[in-house]
Nucleic acid binder design. Structure first.
Lengths: 240, 240
DNA sequence: CAGTGGTCTAGACCACAGA
DNA sequence: CTGTGGTCTAGACCACTGT
């Protein structure tokens, strides 16, 4: 379906990225934009709200709407802040090569902590997977993944070498909706050092994640340990 | 001013946090809520949008609105993900004690990189500040801060020992509006180890930040190096 | 004062899910 | 079919800014 606010959002975003609107310059007021896009002011406002949240523009009551200077993106793999995608998709979209090694793939009974995270019963069967993901021929991240067997059935080594998220969405027909992430720095373990080719003094950027389907079911609990020099995370915050 | 959508947002958020709505249960439909709060459906919808973005609820067209299981917050200092506050305010709101040591406080000429970040000219005067922030009597973060002297005038050691953000907002009358953050793990330097009381193998959680006023001017460029075991960052992502 | 964005209304039509 | 959320309208009044 064609969403008007999405069209307006994309158009203005493009114009900013292409320099048609300069940094700190004022853009048209909402009434003018509403006439131009042949829609109501509410719809324009919704589109501008999206751009405010992403840090493209800021609005001042009584004055107008202005272009905010965006920080340029670095020459690193960009993990989207507010979206949820598998690493396979992220790398492909950025034209990086990716391959995976399955280091461990087993069935286990959920312990208490894991059962709580995945909202299943203690002793319910879960996959325990450890994969090394190699991006651009460099070891990038060591991913430990737990998923409920009852929910995500039929995982094979073949699937683990490709995209698990693709399998969940396209083969199982489930919809991935959201994720909670906790980020921290951590001392590298011997395992990290071995597989990510790190010196003992080199740390890890750890991301702990619970991902949810569109019916609110947590389907994945994962701990990703990234090479500290190949991963960074960007965030935009607004004063409330 | 009393905002209706804010009242509705807060009420439902409280009800979820107090367990009045159980996890995965359905909440009232938008029309019913609109009647209950004596407002239009659009206003209810705006309130629910906020809750979706923060991961409290999810909505399914044709079915209803449901409570999503929130991850419990840890017994650590919580840095708000989508808001922007100084460390002084964050610690006080969480009833932590905070003190600061000013390790370095000098006037300098901006080099090319800094001039670009702060959108000033090369050789313009800037403050270069290094502070150790001590939370709950433990060294917590080493903060390197650069600010344009022309924009943020009158900084004193006294102000640095209290809240710079308070000074900017209350004394200078400027409005802090937003910030771009980049997060990464980093090997600790000898300086980090000395002031944060770290062993050489213990890493740093670094946050690089450019903060903006409400007129889009960048007023602060800072690099904060946190003890890896006292700082973590949480984020909620939605499939787009 | 006029011009701006912020909020809010009372509807409308649509897409989608389940009975 | 009904009930749900998603989008959209064409206004309205308000708060704030600069002239």
């Amino acid at each position: 379906m064609v969403l008007k606010y999405n069209i307006i959002y994309k158009k203005i975003k493009e114009d900013i990225e292409n320099g048609i609107y300069k940094v700190n310059s004022k853009i048209e007021d909402e009434k003018t934009l509403a006439k131009y896009f042949n829609c109501s002011r509410m719809t324009v406002s919704k589109a501008l709200d999206l751009l405010v949240q992403e840090g493209y523009i800021y609005r001042k009551r009584g004055q107008g709407t202005f272009v905010l200077s965006k920080v340029k993106q670095k020459n690193k793999l960009m993990v989207p802040e507010r979206d949820i995608k598998g690493l396979t998709k992220i790398t492909k979209e950025s034209n990086y090569s990716i391959s995976s090694k399955v280091l461990f793939f087993n069935l286990e009974f959920a312990d208490k902590k894991l059962a709580e995270k995945l909202q299943i019963k203690e002793q319910d069967p879960v996959y325990n997977i450890l994969r090394l993901r190699i991006v651009d021929n460099k070891p990038y991240v060591l991913e430990r993944t737990y998923m409920s067997v009852q929910l995500i059935s039929g995982i094979t080594e073949e699937i683990l070498l490709n995209s698990v998220y693709d399998y969940i969405e396209n083969t199982l027909g489930l919809k991935i909706a959201s994720a909670n992430k906790t980020l921290r720095a951590s001392i590298s373990t011997e395992e990290d050092q071995k597989f990510l080719n790190l010196k003992p003094v080199e740390p890890i950027f750890e991301v702990e994640q619970i991902a949810y389907l569109d019916d609110g079911t947590p389907f994945e609990y994962s701990i990703s340990r990234h090479r500290y020099d190949l991963f960074e995370f960007t965030s935009f915050a607004l004063k409330q």
